[in-house]
Amino acid sequence: MSPPPPPATSGLPAVPDDATIQDILGVAIFDMNGLPREYYVTPSNTETSWVQTVFQALGLKSLLTASLRLEGFQHIVIHTAEHAAVVIRQKNCYTALLMRGLASEAITETFVDWVRQFEAETLRNSPYFRAA
């Protein structure tokens, strides 16, 4: 029996060598205030409870930035027992990806640049992601 074909990824940015599209379990788009705007689920995971954790982390980031005058936020990684959520700052939003088995060392500049290419319109039109 042959393995199942990879999911359709047309319109999505090319995946870096150290990740595959199947490693993405969900995507959430947040505005620059850290409020969630859109969630996307995948065939292998329809759960969105992780978005609350990202929302809380973005709130904490805002508090720390204001209190400590921290600048230059580019990304954060939130590890859970089973997954990791990677939050990347884009020009007009934050994009969070729920990833399967992602180690902190996998967050390379190439990976961050790849996530920055995600746009809500691309996700809306992708056969791999479904709005939740």
Results as ranks from 00 to 15, higher is better:
6 P>Q: 00
7 P>K: 01
10 S>T: 10
11 G>S: 07
11 G>H: 02
11 G>Q: 03
13 P>R: 00
13 P>V: 07
13 P>M: 01
15 V>S: 00
15 V>H: 06
16 P>E: 05
17 D>P: 09
19 A>K: 06
22 Q>G: 13
24 I>V: 12
28 A>D: 04
30 F>V: 05
31 D>A: 00
31 D>P: 00
32 M>P: 08
35 L>Y: 03
36 P>V: 05
37 R>P: 04
38 E>G: 10
38 E>C: 14
38 E>A: 15
40 Y>P: 04
41 V>E: 12
42 T>K: 00
43 P>C: 07
44 S>G: 11
45 N>H: 07
46 T>H: 14
47 E>T: 15
47 E>Q: 14
48 T>S: 09
48 T>K: 08
48 T>D: 02
49 S>N: 14
49 S>P: 09
49 S>R: 15
50 W>E: 07
50 W>L: 04
52 Q>C: 13
53 T>Q: 05
53 T>H: 03
55 F>H: 10
56 Q>G: 11
57 A>K: 10
57 A>G: 08
58 L>S: 05
64 L>R: 14
64 L>Q: 14
65 T>V: 07
67 S>M: 11
67 S>G: 14
71 E>H: 11
73 F>C: 10
74 Q>T: 15
77 V>P: 02
77 V>D: 07
79 H>F: 04
79 H>G: 12
80 T>L: 09
81 A>M: 06
82 E>T: 12
82 E>Y: 12
83 H>A: 10
85 A>C: 08
85 A>I: 02
86 V>E: 04
88 I>Q: 02
91 K>Y: 10
91 K>C: 10
92 N>D: 14
95 T>G: 06
95 T>H: 03
98 L>R: 04
98 L>H: 02
100 R>H: 11
101 G>F: 05
101 G>Q: 11
103 A>M: 14
104 S>F: 04
107 I>C: 00
108 T>I: 08
108 T>G: 03
112 V>F: 07
113 D>Y: 05
114 W>S: 06
114 W>C: 08
115 V>D: 03
115 V>Y: 01
117 Q>N: 10
118 F>A: 03
119 E>F: 07
120 A>S: 13
121 E>K: 13
125 N>R: 08
126 S>G: 01
127 P>A: 08
127 P>V: 06
127 P>S: 09
127 P>N: 05
129 F>M: 01
130 R>Y: 12
